[in-house]
Design a protein around this nucleic acid. Structure first.
Lengths: 194, 194
DNA sequence: CCGAAAGACTACACTACTAAAGTCTTCAGA
DNA sequence: TCTGAAGACTTTAGTAGTGTAGTCTTTCGG
């Protein structure tokens, strides 16, 4: 069920409308609750469409979603937008080895710089460049336009209801999943995470 | 964005609470609308958590999300749950070559059978085995329990409002994205797609 | 009966990741 | 100051899944 950001050659699949898909599920698995299934399917598909849209935005900017993940972690860290590879890896959920390669690519692309820490030469600092910061800001501008369009026909009450309902669902998941070991100062995320 | 199914060693990242993340975005990109950003971030994170939960269910069943995608396509096709590799590839959005490998793995695992079509021996039929069908049904059982728990504190009105709001958002995306070339009889989808 | 087209498979290369080994730096203790 | 242990990053090797291109077999029109 994950799917994340592999746009290279993967072409658009053919999809049933949500109502048709729910009908199939009812046909093949009678126990299903149509309304629950509709909500969940719509939510999943919406998230997927958003992922595709973000991916397109990033593609226009010439960066990958993996790159964006790193930019975001640095932005979240705040000025001076600087972290070590190990810390970045931890926040994003990668091994340090994988982060070395990501940073290689990103440094070549001019999105970040890599330099030895002056006070402790074991440490390496990955720092956002002006270009990297601008790419992130531009991605946010595109996202903001897109996201506002998503909610353009929802009034204030509908927006708060939606926010509340989604928040309650999220809490339900997190209560039932003891994954994120209760740390509150966490970070990172996936390609989206917008 | 499309994240699909990388459970092997990828460890849990550290994440900010939604409200903290929105605060960071406001700090670094003042134009952001906090409410819109909250809704979108919650939605994205919820989808990600669902993906993780489904991945865990599938892991318990001993199948990958790539496998599940194929099982679903065959189920959607309906009895006798049989399609050719090329057709499967088209519905899922893969090249036929990639599908050959997937089917290899799945046939070895006993989830599907591969056989030459009797009337046209160029064609190959991939057919769901009883085991494959049971795995899919079991995945649906687990998903149903999980999904019901997500909505367990939502009453009938809240559920319809949620369904309506999400549906409107999805339509907004699809209207603005001329991806799925208007075909109504489409299929497939991603790892989730529940 | 021949040649073109279609469907599936094979061979090869690529990307991105994990795990484990290796290198260099720092620091505590004698 | 030397020495050894611990830490931080990189390197190497191996894996999984995919795409591209080419091959083989069957089908079908002429």
């Amino acid at each position: 069920m994950t799917e994340s950001s592999q746009e290279p050659g993967r072409q658009e699949p053919h999809e049933l409308a949500i109502s048709e898909q729910v009908a199939v599920y009812q046909r093949e698995f009678p126990n299903v609750d149509p309304q629950v299934e509709t909500i969940v399917s719509t939510l999943s598909r919406l998230a997927r469409r958003m992922t595709v849209a973000y991916g397109r935005h990033l593609n226009d900017l010439g960066i990958s979603s993996a790159d964006w993940e790193v930019l975001k972690a640095l932005i979240v860290a705040g000025a001076p937008y600087r972290l070590g590879p190990g810390e970045l890896a931890k926040r994003i959920g990668l091994t340090p080895a994988a982060m070395t390669h990501r940073v290689d690519r990103m440094a070549t692309a001019g999105l970040v710089t890599r330099s030895r820490d002056e006070s402790n030469r074991v440490r390496v600092n990955i720092e956002l460049t002006e270009l990297g910061r601008e790419k992130w800001l531009e991605s946010m501008r595109m996202a903001a336009v897109f996201e506002e369009s998503l909610l353009q026909d929802a009034g204030p009450e509908e927006r708060s209801e939606l926010a509340g309902a989604l928040d309650r669902m999220l809490h339900r998941v997190e209560d039932s999943q003891p994954d994120a070991q209760g740390r509150t100062e966490d970070l990172g995320g996936d390609t989206d995470g917008h």
